[in-house]
Structures are given as structure tokens and as C-alpha cells.
Amino acid sequence: MPKKVVHYINQFFAGIGGEDKADYKPEIRAGIVGPGLALKSALGNEYEVVATVICGDNYFGSNIDKGVVPELLEMIKKYKPEGFVAGPAFNAGRYGVACGTIAKAVQDELHIPVVTGMYVENPGADMFKKDVYIIETKNSSADMRHAMPKLAALLKKQMEGKEVLGPKEEGYIEKGIRVNYFNERRGSERAVDLIVAKVKGEPVYTDYPLPVVDKVAPAPALKDLAHARIALVTSGGIVRQGNPDHLESSSASKWCKYSIEGMDHADKKDFMTVHGGYDRAFITEDPDLCIPVDVLRELEKKGFIGKLMDYFITTTGTGTATNSAKRFAEEYVPLLKKDRVDGVLLVST
């Protein structure tokens, strides 16, 4: 039995039409369509392209929040695919975003290997390179006959459970993922050679290319502190005494929320710290050193601030991945918004 693969393409590659047909609604057809021929021949006899799912680029883009993804997933699911290919999209921006979106959804929801392809400057590449394998293509569909065999090869490798090598070997756009391996030489030995090369002005390399850190514009200033609702957030690992929610001492997987309602200070009988990255002795004795409930309560009484929220939000900062920290905030920010929080103090140790 050949292994089943489903292929996603847009209205243009399906031969339905160009810009004028970009509102074409989702449709699935048995067998191959358009570039599916190239895919079929690159995959070989042990694989079968059982269906081709087609969607107009504009339809996809304007319905991305209105259920186009679940709709497509339902269509794809019926064919019980074991692998999924989207595009390649080359330099077509909306098509690239659609390929990335659907490939990621199939990977996450149907748990099968996926691959797509696009030109490195396609906006879809930056959006999805961390999530799915994107074969790097040239900027026009003239590259189809070179690109499709690479897509097919990488899909087969994944479906056969073989080790996927680096971006250079496989031809995908670098995902920015840090993967371990055992080097032939130990680190110190390589470092010694590297510093000599650097001093001599010879070519050098780095194991870890510096990432570009994104910046966010500051939120507008608070106008009326005396009526503001202030929330306290910390990465100092402060938890309820006994750590009922098992917050980790390092590499936190979650955030917690604890009540400070009616408390005039943070007492050691109520709170403790589990942070594994500093000497906990001081904060253990007086949690106010990290969550300043005492001072905030006094300021609240004086009318300097409107209200100290009845809870604080906490996690452990040390060893916690930046993406996890981002996710925590994405999870609790809606809560802050719902509770009409006007300003936040975030205390890090």
C-alpha cells in the first residue's frame, strides 16, 4: 500500500485563474492537480497523492479568523493522509502565508509530517520557519522542477522516521532551532584555535549567531495614578507556602496567581520562594522584599494609587525560555485587561 499524501495549492496553480479568482472557495479533489504531477513523480511509487486541496489566496486571507483552517482540515482529514505538502509558494506572499498556516495546522492537529516551500523573502517564511520545514526556493515558479524534488525528499525522510539533517543538507530555511550534537573536538580545543584565528584576522565562525531581539513600543503613560488599579507581577518564584501548584525552581512551565486580598504585607507564613537561581534566605524571611505588598498597601491607603489588585501573578525567571515567558504573559494579560488593570509593576530578582 502506498503511503497517502495530500497536497495544498492555490487557485492559480490549480489552473482556475489568477487575481480575479483569488476569492475561490475551498475545494478538495481526488488525485493530483497542476504541480501535483511534479510531486507525484518526485515521491515515487511508494507514495500516492490521494487528494489536492485548493483555496483562493484572498479567500484564505480574509477567512483566516472565520474558520477557513478548520474547514480545510475537515476536508484533508477525510483522506487520512500520512504526509502533507503545501505549495511551494515561491515569492507569492498571500500564498506563502496560506501554505505556512495550513501546514502548521495540519502538523499540530493531524500530527503528521508536513513540508512547504517558498522564497526566503516571502513573508510566510519568517512567520512559519520556526514551526514547519520550508524548502527554500527561488523567487519564481520556474524553479518548480528543482524545488519539488527537495520538498518530496524532506517529506519522505520525515515519514520514514529518518533523521532530518541541517538546513544546508536538506535545503530548508533555517528554523533558528538549537539542536545538540557531539562535535569531534571538545569546546575548549575549538575555542583555542578560534581565538588564534580571530587575533590573526583569519576567517572566524560562531556556533551561536546573535539573534535579533524584537522591541515593543512603550504603552501610553498612566494619567491618573490616584485612581489607577495596579497589579503586581514577579519572576522571583514567590508561591503560596508549600508550593501547592508545584511551580518549578528553574525552567518554569507555568505561571501562578495567588490572593493578597486583605493582607497588609506579604508574610512568610503565607508565601515562600522556589526560585533556584539565588540565595533564598532573605526573601524566605520577608517576601515583601520581592512582592512589596506592605508598601503598596500603605500607598493605597494614602490614596497615592487607586487600588492594589487582590492577587499577584508569579513565575520563576531562571532558566525559563523566553518563548515560555512570552506565552505566560499572553495567557494572563487578558485577565489583567478583564480586571481593568491600569498599570503593572513587574519585579525580577
Partner: peptide, 15 residues
């Protein structure tokens, strides 16, 4: 975390 709070439009001071 601090960036996500800013991004949501809530001013935040990082101590």
C-alpha cells in the same frame, strides 16, 4: 513578559 504587557497597552515598570 514585560513586552507582552506593554504590547497590550498596559504601562508596566520593570523593577
Amino acid at each position: 513578559m514585560v513586552k507582552e504587557i506593554d504590547r497590550a497597552g498596559i504601562p508596566v515598570t520593570h523593577i
